[in-house]
């Protein structure tokens, strides 16, 4: 039984079968990659997992609880954090403020009317955010506006914000899209470190085979909304079906 169990999920947009009978089992503490050509339904699946879309049929269980019908913020509070393709951060706020917000969300829950105390008087949150910034090597940028950060730093900040919530499952949507090779390698190292040192399960959607094969313990290949195969990386590489559907173009 994996930490995330997707069973028989169907999602139709008009005449298009975006997801057809998708099954997926993500094991605790693993790195699970979901790959597939454009239009395979990867993003639709991700949106189902975070509560943005509700599937027509099927079930999605996280740690024994159904996530279907819950709002994104509720699913996040259950322990699923999401990193977006283009970093979603609070551009108008400083890096430090960006980091404090998930710490408040972790401590106080989805809503807390804490309107009189000063932010800086919340020592536990301030310390936790500063600690996290140090771990992300961003302590020197704490007073910068997040919008002014470089693309790579925005990505690091976003991942750091997700980590400060101590999630059990981290979902990443093409985290290295548009990155230089050096940045990509840094991100791979960071994700591996997160998986190994913090015991956080990672589910990643990725186009870049270099990233997929350097990180994943397990790979699911989607094609035209259907899971083609789920297997270990070495088997995926040699699988003729996968080669035909997808890898043939790039590998």
């Amino acid at each position: 039984m994996g930490i995330l169990e997707v069973k028989g999920v169907n999602k139709r947009f008009g005449g298009l079968q975006a997801l057809g009978d998708v099954n997926l089992s993500v094991k605790e503490n693993s790195v699970h990659a979901i790959i597939g050509p454009n239009g395979a339904g990867k993003s639709t699946l991700l949106n189902v997992l975070v509560g943005k879309l509700i599937p027509d049929t099927g079930s999605v269980m996280f740690d024994g609880q159904s996530v279907l019908g819950r709002a994104p913020y509720e699913i996040n509070q259950m322990g699923i954090s999401r990193v977006f393709q283009t970093p979603e951060i609070f551009g108008d706020l400083t890096v430090m403020e960006n980091m404090m917000i998930p710490c408040f969300a972790k401590r106080d829950g989805a809503f807390e009317m804490n309107a009189i105390a000063s932010v800086l008087s919340q020592k536990d949150v301030v310390e936790k955010a500063e600690h996290m910034l140090k771990e992300m090597n961003m302590a020197d940028k704490r007073q910068m506006h997040a919008a002014a950060l470089s693309r790579g730093d925005k990505r690091r900040l976003e991942i750091g914000m997700c980590l400060s919530q101590e999630p059990r499952l981290l979902l990443l949507d093409e985290p290295t899209a548009g990155m230089a090779r050096a940045d990509t390698n840094n991100t791979i190292d960071l994700l591996r470190q997160i998986n190994e040192e913090r015991n956080i399960t990672i589910a990643i959607i990725e186009h870049d085979m270099h990233v997929v094969f350097s990180l994943a313990d397990r790979i699911t290949v989607l094609a035209q909304g259907k899971p083609l195969v789920e297997d270990d990386p070495q088997n995926i590489r040699g699988n003729p079906l996968v080669r035909e559907a997808y890898l043939g173009e790039s590998a």
Binding site: V50, A71, S81, E88, G91, A105, A110
Partner: peptide, 13 residues
């Protein structure tokens, strides 16, 4: 004001 999407995916209502 800055980013409602990130708020929702940070567990905040």
């Amino acid at each position: 004001k800055s980013n409602q999407q990130r708020m929702n995916y940070t567990g905040l209502n």
